[in-house]
Design a protein around this nucleic acid. Structure first.
Lengths: 202, 202
DNA sequence: ACATTTGTCAACCAAATGGTTGAACTTAAT
DNA sequence: ATTAAGTTCAACCATTTGGTTGACAAATGT
């Protein structure tokens, strides 16, 4: 077991990542980040100048983390049909690991519309093998005529939304905490089967 | 044209509704609410005691607004098959009218997990005709064996998520602003057809 | 060994922000 | 008309919060 001693800058950044993702820009407190990092508040300014600068870096990293991690999977050399459950599974397990990430991004992107838009590198999912496969399928007449992007949006919506809206949905549906895991487990199959059936049979 | 003169309390509440829904509890400023209401800041405390109390009322109203408005539609006497596009349409037009509402609820419910949970009246969608219709269809073997709640969650996910995550999705998919309206227009049909096909053909 | 740079912190500062007060004004009751 | 209650606001107040300072310690270079 290697005793990993992280630099102060890393300690701060990790703490900032955690606090900002949990509380958002407006709700986060510099003092709380310092406390979670276990260092003096002055250090935050020593390394990152201001709350806004620190937030910028956190946001950039978070956005990359969320949007980039899916790309390799979309480019994997398996058929689009096999890929759909893989992608759905990716998002679901991603949500289980880091449940605050997408809501954080959605929120901050909404609250500062054009501020961060230009910063983020466009690494779209448009140029991936998955999209090409769908396009090809459409051209060959094997898949229903539909924008491939709609398929991606459906997968993301169906997988990510239940997690971010979990408390709201549980109220509305009177779903119980104890049933959540099986609910999600069932969901994986439903999503894939529904999409594949829709695309293939028309 | 009747000159509608609203009471100060109404002016404040409406302004609070707007500001809180846009900025959230942490991001909202009492002064901003006062400005938007066109009255002195003291009035906020005169009528609502504190920021938290004002927020409580705003949140309660917002939650009711979002979760209750769907119930009558779910109880309407049309077949489940016809109802699906109606419900999808309801959520989409609801999002177009008030794009901040669901994200606001999702957020605040997440940030104050148990605080507001008890306040909100459970007016679940479980006891609606729509759910009964699905159950009945399942029993008769006309519909695939699936929890009816999954259907509701799918409709909400597929309709609401694209709106709240719009900036994020537009980045990831390189979708353009000019294509948004047609994207959503296409989506209505896709969602309904996909769900109905999945439920009926198995 | 010495000087210079880098890192760390307690104490402090200024602005923002939720909240209070007391006086003035309006409305309703007697 | 007079009183009492309700309403409105400018000026204040106390706390929170992002940010700074200056002294001091730990490396780093020569």
């Amino acid at each position: 077991m290697v005793e990993e001693q992280k630099s102060t800058e890393e300690l701060i950044f990790n703490a900032a990542l955690s606090v900002f993702q949990r509380k958002g820009l407006a709700g986060a407190r510099m003092q709380e980040i310092a406390d979670e990092a276990g260092i003096n508040k002055s250090m935050l300014h020593y390394y990152f100048r201001s709350k806004e600068l620190l937030f910028r870096q956190v946001f950039l990293m978070s956005f990359k983390q969320f949007s980039a991690s899916i790309i390799p999977l979309l480019n994997q050399p398996v058929s689009w049909e096999e890929k759909i459950p893989l992608v759905a599974g990716h998002y679901i397990s991603s949500m289980q690991k880091n449940p605050d990430l997408p809501l954080f991004i959605i929120n901050e992107l909404r609250h500062h519309p054009d501020e961060f838009v230009n910063i983020v590198t466009h690494n779209g999912i448009r140029d991936t093998l998955f999209i090409s496969q769908l396009k090809e399928g459409i051209e060959k007449g094997e898949i229903r005529k539909i924008q491939p992007i709609q398929v991606m949006v459906s997968i993301i919506s169906e997988t990510v939304f239940p997690f971010i809206a979990r408390p709201m949905l549980m109220h509305m549906t009177k779903l119980l905490d104890t049933n959540w895991d099986t609910f999600i487990e069932n969901r994986k199959e439903i999503i894939s089967e529904m999409l594949i059936k829709y695309l293939k049979e028309f």
